[in-house]
């Protein structure tokens, strides 16, 4: 479980996040949604420690993330996996070397043990046999899956995904969503996804946090989304006239 407690974040005079308090539950896919500029990415970067909050605390279970010293932070980070929007795969390394990198850096496993773990992860993301390919030789969807494989190779307790579906076609997006959800449930990890994609939200979002102008505008489950009368939420989800008509029809049905 990860808990944000009265988080404020400013860049100079600009206050980007204002009093954010929310809980991301273990074993669930927790989704952060919101318009561009709402503060989603800043919140995600705060949660993983790439930014420091101006005020407030972030708790990883019972550990106050903001009070950790460098060594403790590095140890905790070994329990964190992250899928970046642009994948952040190392271009000069093969798929296998990319996935193996955290094992090489932090474990004393033998070569065979590492290879077994890498192959298990690649198999898990249906990329078995792609070990020797370079990131430039595989498609965007495959790169995402390599990113997922690398993020789970150390068996993390916390998984962060920044726009996992950006640049992917709807069919591949569904595959990636399902993969993230399955991994979350199987390993009982705390997953936080930052997305614009409402298909993802409705498909795998166990809990949803809507940010608007740096504040939490709404939070709930996907089942509560359609019934909610929250204007900001309705405005965000049913942005197009077509979807608005669809919602009206569904409610009248």
């Amino acid at each position: 479980m990860i808990r944000a407690e009265n988080i404020f974040k400013s860049f100079g005079e600009t206050e980007v996040l204002k009093d954010i308090s929310t809980t991301f539950e273990q074993g669930k896919t927790n989704v952060i949604i919101g318009k561009s500029g709402a503060g989603k990415t800043v919140l995600l970067k705060l949660l993983v420690g790439l930014f420091q909050p101006t005020a407030g605390n972030i708790w990883y279970d019972d550990i106050n993330f903001n009070k950790l010293n460098k060594q403790e932070l590095r140890s905790l980070r070994m329990e964190v996996g992250m899928l970046f929007q642009g994948n952040a795969l190392f271009d000069s390394l093969t798929v296998e070397q990319n996935v193996r990198f955290p094992l090489d850096m932090f474990t004393n496993m033998t070569k065979k043990e590492k290879l077994d773990q890498v192959n298990y992860c690649l198999d898990r993301v249906t990329l078995a046999g792609s070990n020797d390919k370079y990131p430039s030789e595989i498609s965007g969807g495959m790169q995402k899956r390599v990113g997922i494989a690398r993020s789970i190779v150390l068996n993390p307790k916390y998984l962060f995904c920044d726009e996992p579906n950006s640049g992917l076609d709807p069919k591949t997006s569904i595959i990636i969503d399902k993969l993230i959800h399955d991994i979350t449930v199987e390993n009982n990890i705390t997953t936080i996804i930052n997305t614009h994609d409402m298909n993802s939200v409705m498909e795998i979002g166990d809990t949803i946090v809507l940010l608007n102008l740096g504040r939490v505008a709404w939070q709930g489950t996907k089942n509560e989304v359609l019934e909610s009368e929250n204007e900001v939420l309705q405005d965000f989800i049913f942005a197009s006239p077509f979807l608005q008509k669809l919602r009206k029809a569904a409610l009248n049905f």
Partner: peptide, 14 residues
């Protein structure tokens, strides 16, 4: 720019 450094930081690499 490609977030490789962020990715390594998040893995716990100095």
């Amino acid at each position: 720019q490609k977030e490789h450094i962020d990715a390594m930081e998040l893995m716990g690499v100095n």
